[in-house]
Simulated scan of single mutants.
Amino acid sequence: MLATIATVSAAALAAPVAGLLGYRQLKRAAFAGKLRITAPAGIEESGFVRIGGIDQWVSIRGEDRRNPVVLEILGGPGASNLVFLPRTRAWEKHFTIVRWDMRGAGFTFAAGGPQGQGELTHQQLYRDALEVTEHLRARLGVDRLLLVANSFGTVLGLRLARNHPELYSGYVGTDQNIIDGGRERTAYDALLARLRAAGRKKEKELAAAVAMGADRSKWTTRDVAEYNKLVLTSDPLSYDTMKTVVMRSLWFSPLHTLRGLRSYLKAMEFSERLQLEAAALDERAEGTDFRIPFFVFQGDSDVLTPPAPARRFFDDVTAPVKEFALIRDASHFASFRHPDRFLDLMLTHVRPAVTAQPAAR
């Protein structure tokens, strides 16, 4: 993912630098104003919390403390969701949203640097997530949180939802990853097909994809970065999303200075090792029985985490309530490309299931 962002960044920065920086400052100021929460019952706080032996950044935002509390599990790995705040501002009318920069990500990485992240493993992130959950239950006075996980965060999100129904009221996965112990190769095969269809223009890329093979357990971190780049840049909708959604959100983030953006990218590079560890996971072996409402909202044209494997896993899930929906005209980053459609799904399917009452529009 980092290689893809770097590729798109280089194209974006081809514009005259002075004009670009001036426009950036204007947009950041406008977004900062948009983000202010002034509702009497609202909450807007952020700062470091001691989690797992290190200081980790936690942001809590919402217009009404009585709303359901969402714990977002970021993707990447290492990609903080805080850059998407202006795009998802409307969500905060209906939910109190906690955005946690886990170790190896965002402001947590920026504060401690590579040496200050401690143990970066899936198991440690799992322990951290439970500690964050307990902190939020006490801080906000709620019994359970609603898990909303995107992209690589769904690996951790599934494990939390599966194992702790006493802590979470429901699970929502978007850009849902399905890691089947190396058996799942839908996205890889589709990549080869796109590159072959492109003919001689993509011969070099095709050779690189064939050389790395479909067995993720044999990949290096460089292979992971190259694979993500090939997948997202070989698909027009995905590449457009990288430019218009991801890069714009990074560049105009009111929370991030230019130095902060460099740190953001370094965090993703630092955290890429988590993808190698994840290659050995098997979601079905860990179980498809969930004792909380279970939802998957997937981009209908997602080429990085295709909807077909997510649907097959969903069909095997047993849960008290479950819903699967496709977000039209969306590849990866579906919830951020179409935040209005994602919110509509949250209000019509998820909120009634976790609160037993519909949300006011």
Rank of each mutant, 00 (worst) to 15 (best):
E166C: 05
Y126G: 10
I179D: 10
G113D: 06
E119V: 13
A111H: 15
H122Y: 15
F109G: 04
Y171K: 03
L167P: 00
S169T: 14
D128A: 08
F107C: 00
M102R: 15
G153C: 07
L167H: 13
V148E: 05
A161F: 02
Y171F: 15
L136V: 07
E119W: 00
V148S: 12
F109H: 12
N150V: 14
L145M: 09
V148F: 11
R162F: 04
G112C: 06
T174P: 01
R137E: 10
T154H: 08
S151V: 02
G181I: 04
R162M: 06
G181H: 04
G104I: 09
E134Y: 04
G170F: 01
A129G: 06
D143M: 03
G153T: 07
G104T: 06
I179A: 09
R103Q: 05
H164Y: 10
H122E: 09
A161P: 05
E184F: 01
V155F: 13
Y126L: 15
A149S: 15
N150C: 10
V172E: 01
T174G: 00
P114G: 11
V142I: 12
E134N: 14
M102L: 12
R127Y: 01
Q124F: 01
Q117K: 11
F109M: 05
A138T: 14
D128H: 08
R139P: 08
A129T: 09
L125V: 11
G141Q: 06
L136G: 08
I179P: 00
G118I: 04
L156E: 07
H122W: 15
V155E: 08
G118F: 05
M102S: 14
A129P: 07
A111G: 10
L125R: 13
T154M: 09
Q115L: 14
Q124D: 03
V148H: 13
L130H: 10
A111M: 11
G118M: 08
L145C: 10
V132W: 02
N150L: 13
E119T: 13
R103V: 03
L158M: 13
Q176H: 13
V155N: 04
A105Q: 08
Q115F: 06
T174N: 12
P165L: 11
G182Q: 02
L145V: 08
D143C: 04
E119N: 07
A111I: 00
G153A: 07
